[in-house]
Amino acid sequence: MGRDTRRTRIVLVLLLLTALTLVMLDDRTSGDGPLAPVRSVLADVLGPVQSGVSAAVRPVTGLVDDLRELGSKDAQIERLEAENQQLRQDAATRANDLRRLAEYDELSRQPTLRRFANVAARVTALSRAQGFTTTASIDVGSVDGVRDDTTVINGDGLVGRVKGAARSTSTVLLATDPDFVARVRVGTTGTTGFVEGQGEGKPLALTIYEPVTLEPGTALVTVGSVGEAPLVADVLVGRVADVRRVPGTLTTRATVTPAVDFAALDTVAVVLPGEREARGPVPAATPSASAPARRRAAGTPSPSASARASR
């Protein structure tokens, strides 16, 4: 540092201290640090720009996707090689459109969306791989009714949850992010456990604090949360792949193949908070139900209610 001027040293040290202060203040796990307003303003400004750029380059990126898929399909390669350059470009962009249409179609059949109000969205940006996070920007925000801690799904199952809703874009914490945790229910037995993300391209990790037997391929669905936030119930998370049980312990661990293909994430839907169909009581199995139910049906006040009234 001998050749640096005093000014360079002061600036370097000051900026480094500022950066490290920010590191301490803005803990990744807590979410709303003092920088949340700054991040939200930046999301309002850069989010629409990202949406625009993403929409503009989508035909090109779609082409890359399609071409990459060709590498694994010899028959398709042969068929496409027979066509001329123009036709191949047409087919590639059209395949992208058809794929999107199929994704919307699948979304419309997604059972969760029949139960809740929702808004369809598209992924406009992804986080940098060297940051060890997997988050995505989507092109809907608070003006579309999206709030923090709402469930994001696609036609296949659970995508993640909204972690920051800006005006017209939102940030989604994908299920593969190391910070993501969801309570899940084993489809066949009803046992609950929890699933955690392990990073990009990795399967999810299931932990159940009970010695249960799990078959590979067993479906896992979300348990859901009070007030439907952050996750609604009964969304498919994934299927059990490898079960590991250490002898002598009670904990069952397994890897889970996510239901969603996170490498090709495009069309998603956000479950909107606060609106859902009303839940009725469990219908009586036989005409002669329990005694209190009969009394209510006949209009007779229950003993405790009449005692209160006479006092």
């Binding site: 203040l25 803005d26 990744r28 940006a125 995505a136």
Partner: peptide
């Protein structure tokens, strides 16, 4: 701070 960042500013 650019979306989709979600915390860990300063790193």
């Amino acid at each position: 701070l650019t979306p989709p960042s979600d915390g860990g500013a300063g790193r």
